[in-house]
Design a protein around this nucleic acid. Structure first.
Lengths: 344, 344
DNA sequence: CATCGTGCTTGAATCCTTTCAACGAGGCAA
DNA sequence: TTGCCTCGTTGAAAGGATTCAAGCACGATG
């Protein structure tokens, strides 16, 4: 490649190879219809000049870009990144790129990102919704951009979606705690603006309601779905309601924080308090107290969602079932707290 | 916003507002030079028609996109995502978007991504290099795209870079183990194609060489920088060299795997073997055996790198110093193994 | 009343690639 | 030799926003 700094256009390549621009374009996009000889000529010219096609011009002409957008709630959460991996692998198979962004659960930020996506005329958008997502969606749909919901979907709407049954997962989690004999259960939940938080609440409540012995769910809402939030939540919970013997955390990062609080305040898990997470991230099994959790087929979820985006005539909604993973962080109710045996 | 499905162009807006396309463009890009009255007129038309500017057309004309590219080694590693957060926050301040991609340490994949970046005429690219990065860089530099190296830089080259002194970090880590009395130290390293792996090896070796009592570094290379790799590496190490009393892992995910292996094979940490990580990711302190590690100012690293990209006349290279974090996974040499006391 | 200035608006030119109807060359059949 | 086909190549048009020199209107000044 010659030391070529200036802008090299397709016309320069054509001139150098002694062919027309149309032919160069053909070499780039439909090499099979070009004579081998011509092709070599053009390829040599491209190489010599260091030509790199201008994606903007191509997109402008083609009307759509060769990328799909992905908007997740939290880029630092390994759960979403595992999902992104599944998405990217599927996209690459069709020669598409992934544009990844994070809303941090902030509707305004979400709006900005979706606006960007719309301006880019992406081939499609995959997103994990927050409460106001549907309003923000207008910019995309008005451009005819396909949208697939990831992990959750807006209630009662007919969008394409690949989801796990969060209500069922949360229900299973709380049922697990009930089976262990707990009857006063804390629930450290995130902002209810998030679909997943609402769904998981629904499931948790459902489990409580259908328990034969009357049990209580002590609900709590934290601002940020991370370890710091979990720590703060556990703090409030332990202070406000010392009767709680088990805590269900809305995800594993939050549970991580809850466990941290317990360790630092000499609350033994699970002897004094059981703790349950959600998502079953990589390190859940490796913690000081291996964390009981609810597993989702994360990679599959992403892969399927991308697949749905690329093959429009498949079924519209795919639901995965989550799976309970029991480890050491959940156990029987402490002796002194068992129902009916308090005091004596 | 009217239900407007077809493609709306800037000309349509102009016609509807009764002004020229130039004026609409001015409203979009330099609202301050347009009369308030005209501006309102145009904004109303934009809203009514549901107009969304076409980014491709804009970029084509402007010659560069309003985004910067970020290429990391592993999208699933919380360390890199924390860095990405720093980058994005800095970019947003200048109205830029972040395009995030992952090379998985695969030079061929890296090449493809950089090619994509080049075609997109990005405002700049931030990347964590693998060995062959410099060769792959040609496509970018020929387009005049600014490049800033992240976390590591190619040896002996004059590129813009924001790095931590990895050699120093690894040296500190191994010195810590030496101070504890270990003299046969395992080193589970990743592919030497990765700059960071080479640097850390350099530091580790340096520490060994300058130890007064002759100590040995037992080096081992694994294919993948993740927990599975760490588990396999620990396995090989324990089998091949039972004399090893301490293991330095090239990063925390690898250390996670090493700890997992130890737990599953009844190797007590740190009583029988000390384990040391690198990066100090979120959960390092919360593991079954809290992990000693080396902390980098991760978020700052990303933020500074983006800042360097955006303000070209600042110093060319910024070096952060890493910091030793001692936790429970490292301890004194087991009694029976102490130097000079073996057997009796 | 004429002239000059100020400041907003105009619209043609430009950015670069893809597409496709039209063209031309060469082979084959009549 | 002429006509017809096939197959590869050509080149002009299209795609949509930005830019900037030129135009215009209106108010102020001499």
């Amino acid at each position: 490649m010659a030391a070529q700094t200036g802008r090299v256009r397709i016309g320069d390549v054509a001139r150098r190879a002694g062919v027309s621009v149309g032919t160069v374009s053909n070499v780039l996009n439909r090499p099979q219809i070009v004579t081998e000889e011509t092709r070599h000529l053009v390829e040599a010219a491209i190489h010599d000049l260091g030509f790199v096609p201008n994606a903007s011009a191509r997109q402008l002409r083609e009307g759509a870009s060769r990328a799909a957008g992905v908007l997740v709630l939290d880029i630092a959460n390994p759960f979403f990144m595992e999902m992104a991996r599944g998405i990217e692998d599927r996209l690459i198979a069709d020669g598409l790129t992934m544009v990844l962004s994070s809303s941090d659960g902030d509707p305004e930020r979400e709006r900005r990102v979706l606006e960007q996506f719309a301006q880019q005329r992406l081939r499609g958008v995959l997103l994990t919704p927050s409460r106001r997502t549907v309003e923000n969606l207008g910019v995309l749909t008005s451009q005819g951009t396909r949208v697939v919901f990831l992990d959750h979907k807006p209630r009662g709407q007919q969008f394409d979606a690949v989801v796990t049954d969060d209500a069922a997962g949360a229900r299973t989690a709380v049922q697990h705690l009930l089976h262990l004999g707990h009857h006063r259960i804390g629930f450290i939940n995130g902002p209810l603006a998030l679909q997943q938080c609402r769904e998981r609440r629904t499931g948790a409540r459902r489990a409580i309601r259908s328990s034969s012995a009357g049990a209580t769910l002590v609900e709590l809402e934290i601002d940020e779905l991370n370890a710091a939030g979990g720590e703060a939540g556990m703090h409030r919970l332990m202070d406000d309601d010392p009767e709680v013997t088990a805590v269900f955390c809305v995800n594993d990062l939050v549970a991580l924080g809850a466990l941290r609080y317990a360790r630092e305040h000499q609350v033994r898990v699970p002897d004094q308090v059981s703790v349950m997470g959600y998502d079953d991230v990589t390190f859940a099994g490796e913690l000081a107290v291996p964390l009981s959790s609810v597993r989702q087929p994360t990679y599959q979820l992403g892969w399927q969602a991308a697949d749905l985006l690329l093959t429009p005539d498949t079924p519209r909604q795919i639901v995965f079932q989550p799976e309970l993973v029991v480890r050491a962080s959940t156990g029987a109710v402490p002796a002194g707290r068992r129902r009916g045996r308090t005091a004596g």
